[in-house]
């Protein structure tokens, strides 16, 4: 038995070595998980698909995001990401007061449509006071006014092959050596048709300002801020994300964020 106890002692020493290895590991030993194409990361990312499917099961298609009272709007909506796009197309539109703005619905639809800002404003509108949750961790409550995306999709006639909406924006991200990439996002048709998914043109009882996405910003209220594309110009119905950006379904998903964005 005494020999056995010696072995336990050895064993403890070795476990201490192992434990300190794990502590040292905190330095940069797991940085390889940051490589987008690493098999270990691919494996971990499967959890995001699980989250998406389980949340769709739990919330269903129609469950609403929580809404708040007017009195709970205590500050202006915090702008984040692009706040003043400089692409020539956008600058021209902005300087013309968005008079020439058209929102297009294209892709897998029976009829490609486009709407002016006035046409959108004259459609049945709705306002909702919701909490905007940024992926960084902060939240901000604001009142968003606009018209629902769902009826416009019905008007265009979504083809049965369509599975997702891709939302194309005027703003570009990045720069420097890697060059710029246009901002885009996407959602499934459940989020596109959700009763709170609106093409927002108003914020806190004012016209939507440039810093928050003028003239039109999409609100997908059951998802994080990066799923609320600003400076929207085209809604394209597609059956896959191949061919857009790096194929992950959005600017931030192309840069390592989960596509679902509901968590």
């Amino acid at each position: 038995m005494s020999r056995l106890i010696v072995s336990r002692r050895k064993f403890l020493t070795a476990s201490a070595a192992g434990a300190s290895g794990l502590i040292l590991a905190g330095c940069d030993q797991f940085d390889f998980l940051g490589q987008r194409d690493h098999p270990a990361r691919d494996f971990l990312e499967r959890a995001n698909t699980l989250t998406y499917q389980v949340q769709r099961l739990m919330a269903g298609e129609q469950a609403l995001a929580r809404t708040y009272a007017e009195s709970e709007i205590r500050q202006p909506q915090r702008p984040n990401g692009s706040v003043d796009p400089t692409t020539p197309d956008y600058v021209a539109l902005r300087d013309g007061g968005f008079a020439d703005y058209r929102l297009r619905i294209t892709g897998l639809v029976e009829r490609e449509l486009s709407f002016s800002l006035d046409e959108l404003r004259n459609m049945p509108g709705q306002s909702q006071i919701t909490r905007h949750d940024c992926v960084e961790g902060w939240s901000c409550i604001a009142k968003w006014s606009g018209t629902r995306l769902g009826p416009l999709l019905d008007q265009a006639g979504v083809k049965p092959a369509a599975r997702f909406c891709v939302y194309h924006c005027y703003d570009v991200m990045g720069g420097g050596l890697a060059g710029t990439e246009p901002y885009y996002e996407s959602s499934d048709l459940i989020d596109a048709y959700h009763p709170q998914t609106i093409l927002a043109y108003g914020l806190n009882n004012e016209v939507l300002p440039v810093s928050n996405g003028a003239p039109v910003r999409l609100r997908i209220e059951r998802a994080l801020g990066y799923k609320q594309p600003k400076y929207l110009h085209t809604v394209e119905l597609v059956d896959s994300f191949a061919g857009f950006g790096q194929g992950q379904g959005g600017y931030w998903p192309d840069h390592g964020y989960d596509w679902y964005g509901g968590i």
């Binding site: 905190g26 959890a47 995001n48």
Partner: peptide
């Protein structure tokens, strides 16, 4: 500090991937 985070550099997207996997 970097020694207390995964990855050791600023990478929110990867932090979320790791966090949600181990949460499950």
């Amino acid at each position: 500090p970097g020694w207390a985070t995964i990855p050791s550099y600023r990478d929110l997207g990867t932090g979320r991937v790791v966090h949600f996997f181990f949460a499950w």
